[in-house]
Design a protein around this nucleic acid. Structure first.
Lengths: 122, 122
DNA sequence: CGCCATCGATTACATTCGTAATCGATCTCG
DNA sequence: CGAGATCGATTACGAATGTAATCGATGGCG
């Protein structure tokens, strides 16, 4: 069962902190994402139906918490992109950004550090 | 105007070789993607409407060719994923795969080579 | 105790997407 | 010349998605 992009906004809030009530989720959403309260409620219900989150009664309201791990979601999305566009491999993606000159010095430094730590850990 | 995943299959064929007639596109699609001919025609028309491709009459039929560059599409998709999931940065994506132990030796070697060439080029 | 505020649940609705059938024009072969 | 094949164009239609209004139950305040 797929988590849509709108739904993932809600998940993001819950991944950051949980459990949260609907109100808290609405408050936690980025300000530029100004959905009507009802919209968030809809998304919560859809996520419930998909078993992506669980709700636990807390008196009058519910507290929601993620059932799907953020890492799993991120991984599925990322791997999907790699599969669709880069033959499933990571290096070509990085090469793509490199060719487009979209690698900041920061990026390069980060990547270098990462590779070094991989070597150390080996 | 967004290119959907189904549409991108057609684009992929055209990016590989163009111009192509509808028939040729249908033939070029991966065998496991067995769409009815009509389906491909629909996708072609949607892409035309979006100005993602152009059609040039060739006697009785049309020859199609991409207007959107593959690199532009790939970049938009990739950057979109990075923005949504990795704060817009590349290194965290690589780190993610690393943490999930999804980096093959091949990947690591490729990345290392890539970084080296960046250094050389600098 | 009654009424309004507040929740979650249900219903709504336009758009996009995946997938395709059908239609209308045109070409080609007998 | 006429009928069937072949194209692209038009129409179809259900599922998913984004976005939200409305409804029904419940609880707190006056």
């Amino acid at each position: 069962m797929r988590i849509s992009t709108a739904e993932s906004q809600v998940m993001k809030a819950l991944w950051a902190r949980s459990p949260l009530s609907a109100d808290e989720i609405i408050a936690a959403l980025p300000a530029d994402q100004d959905w009507a309260d009802a919209t968030v409620k809809t998304l919560l219900n859809r996520l419930l139906k998909k078993d992506a989150i669980a709700a636990e009664r807390d008196g009058r309201r519910f507290l929601y918490r993620p059932l799907v791990a953020q890492g799993d979601y991120v991984h599925a999305e990322s791997q999907g992109l790699l599969d669709r566009l880069f033959d499933g491999r990571l290096a070509p993606l990085v090469a793509h950004f490199s060719q487009r000159e979209k690698l900041s010095d920061q990026d390069v430094a980060d990547l270098r550090r990462l590779l070094e730590s991989l070597e150390d850990g080996k």
